[in-house]
Write a protein that binds this DNA or RNA. Sequence first.
DNA 1: GATGCTGATTACTTCAACGATACTGGCCTA
DNA 2: TAGGCCAGTATCGTTGAAGTAATCAGCATC
Lengths: 135, 135
Amino acid sequence: MAKPLDPDMFDPMCPSSAMPIQIGDKWTAMVVLCLEDGPRRFNELRGPLRGITPKVLAQTLRAMERDGLVTRTAYDENPPRVEYELTMLGHSLFTLIAAARAWSREHLPSLLAARASYEASADASLLEASRDHIQ
Amino acid sequence: MAKPLDPDMFDPMCPSSAMPIQIGDKWTAMVVLCLEDGPRRFNELRGPLRGITPKVLAQTLRAMERDGLVTRTAYDENPPRVEYELTMLGHSLFTLIAAARAWSREHLPSLLAARASYEASADASLLEASRDHIQ
DNA sequence: GATGCTGATTACTTCAACGATACTGGCCTA
DNA sequence: TAGGCCAGTATCGTTGAAGTAATCAGCATC
């Protein structure tokens, strides 16, 4: 419930960035994943979300709050404390995430293969063109 | 298989544009839906895809071809004929589309309600502010 | 008195997607 | 010889999302 978030939970090399599916905007799905085990604080979210700036994180959370996906609770303490927690609606996104994961497990390799062979043939025609040009 | 596409198959007023899920880029999911019943020609796709310009449609189809989602077949006739058809990989996207539809059926109303009440309260504070200002 | 923590905000810049408009080339028909 | 059909290209402009860098206020600690 309160385990610290793994700073490496999102591998930047993971091909999931090639997935032809997106949930919310760029960071929404990752925020949902970070909030899976309970409420988290603003700066706590910045760990796994490598490279997100406070501006973009604030924007993302504001948009999710507007859509009823998270709740924002500010505690009147010092230093200030703000907690973000998934609503039931936010939790319901896990069904979509599961579907996306299932699709990826089954089909992403084919997509990646298609892309690679497409680029290989593009490279081949480039090579051909340059050879024609040299001769 | 060869029934003409309904020009109104995508209602621009449909709230599905608010779905927190997206497949490919803006037009990809709609192209997939158009190709469900068999191959279609370039200009045939422009009917339901209201307002898409040939440039953007060509870009979209090129990207889908690169990812192995559609095949492009050019017939050497006059006037020229080109047909686009879903591959098996392209067909597999229907599982994702079905998941998105199921989520929307169940949860989109809540999201829309959250958004409306958020904007109502934003409007209310605006009203309050303007009232304060007037007095 | 200086610094740091927390949860932001502001101004500026960059970039890619998207869109509007016009045009091409080869063949066919009038 | 003029225009139309098809499947696109070419060129330019707009827009919005995202990133960079700097800054804020209030309190606590050094």
